[in-house]
Design a protein around this nucleic acid. Structure first.
Lengths: 257, 257
DNA sequence: ATAATAGTGTCTGTAAGACAGTATATC
DNA sequence: GATATACTGTCTTACAGACACTATTAT
């Protein structure tokens, strides 16, 4: 008797208000995790994609992901998928984004996908040392055509990332361990896609308690095009920013989902 | 050949970067939806619960929910579960909350549950005309002991509801079609659990574009303890509030998930 | 020297909150 | 009349954004 059958027998006593039907009557559901992994490379926001090697959607790019394994927690599965493609330390920041389960989203069978959002500092190309057939960073705002509903998942991930920068210190997860205020501003400008006023941003960041803390050191040299050496900071202990750094003049119709 | 077997045969060609293993090797995963349905009754926030009639966790209360059905989209499943317990119109506001999939969360088998958050105006008790064995509204802040990880799901739903009131006009989904500013303030005070300054709240609400729009009518009588007749408003067309109504002086360690 | 950048000072507009005050209703 | 409520006026404080300015570095 298989694991599946044994449990279904137990479930036969289940009363209507709990299940209303016997799960055995229906085809199984595949549960996967997909990861929207974002990084900044050369001042451009990039997303990690893998190329599909077989139908359906052969040749198209897709978000890295795969089936959850027995006994494996969901964030654990997302970290594993990410590590398999990038060699990225499984300790990177990762958070649940949303779950997609439209019956038509995969032509083969019913697939429910839990998406995760990951932020990472600039990483090496994923090919070397990875078991991925083809994986690469692509510009997040101009990705190739994506398989299934992954374009929608990516769009949701980008909007979440933009919103999270406002009220959390997650921008620091895109930088190295220490960073200058200018580098931090670059993260905001890249993710939000808008230029920010350097002076006001500087004062604002330092005024938010726990956002950054001084290291006491400065950069070795000035900027490549001149300027004084900037002070170096590391991430503070705040988990929320107060007051928040609001995006400038949003027309806003989004995020009200 | 069953639906299940047929598709697994197709999957055998799957290459490592997509699945890494054959789903047939593993026990199936049950996918359910659970609904955190909130309403305000007599000035107290309530959550809809159903009583479990069988082990495990027999006698405990749980969030309404159940298995998704083939061909049924996730929000559709959530609306159906809610309608089955309450007779509530399936057009109520509903939004995805989060997905819970810890391997230990249900002792019987692997269950991945997608939770939804629903807001509703004051509703009648769910017993009459419902197919639920036992369903009732309970105080959301002092619920009975809940089955599985439903206490956590409820807590997440409450925090999401509180946050959503800040930057969306969802408070109006707790009221009738028309409402006074005082009634709207009552929603905020109940959900946030803090008293608000009546005068400042009044001016603030009217100053946010698209939050409420005047009906031109007033209440028939004044308040039960005196006072002038209040003007009636209906929900405006804004989907986001600008500027937002921020909760007063939050110590804040939450929401940074 | 020129240009670019780091960082600070200052002003203005907006908005939140505290508080007061007036009008209108119930008891 | 007493009291509670609806709604408005005004003041203070905080902060975002614009602008100006100095100091420091690369070229």
């Amino acid at each position: 008797m298989s694991w599946f059958e044994k449990d279904v027998v137990v479930d036969e006593k289940e009363s209507a208000f709990l299940a209303e039907y016997d799960p055995r009557d229906y085809p199984p559901v595949a549960v996967t995790v997909d990861v929207v992994a974002l990084t900044i490379r050369a001042g451009v926001l990039h997303v990690l994609l893998v190329e599909r090697g077989r139908p359906p959607q052969q040749g198209r790019w897709a978000l890295p992901g795969g089936f959850i394994r027995p006994g494996e927690d969901l964030p654990e599965a997302a970290r594993r998928e990410l590590a398999e493609e990038t060699g990225l330390s499984p300790r990177a920041h990762i958070e649940q984004l949303a779950t997609y389960g439209s019956p038509e989203r995969d032509p083969r069978m019913r697939v429910v996908s839990i998406s995760y959002l990951a932020f990472a500092p600039d990483l090496p190309d994923p090919e070397a040392g990875s078991d991925a057939a083809a994986a690469a960073w692509h510009p997040a705002l101009r990705p190739p055509e994506l398989a299934f509903d992954h374009a929608r998942i990516l769009a949701d991930g980008l909007e979440r990332a933009r919103a999270k920068l406002e009220y959390t210190p997650l921008a620091t997860t895109f930088t190295g361990e220490t960073f200058t205020i200018s580098e931090l501003r670059g993260v905001y400008e890249t993710v939000w896609g808008v230029p920010l006023h350097a002076g006001n941003f500087h004062r604002k960041v330092l005024s938010v308690p726990g956002f950054v803390e001084a290291t006491g050191h400065s950069t070795i040299s000035g900027g490549s095009r001149g300027g004084p050496r900037a002070k170096l900071y590391r991430a503070g202990d705040a988990r929320l920013l107060h007051p928040a750094l609001l995006r400038p003049t949003e027309t806003e119709q989004e995020e009200a989902r």
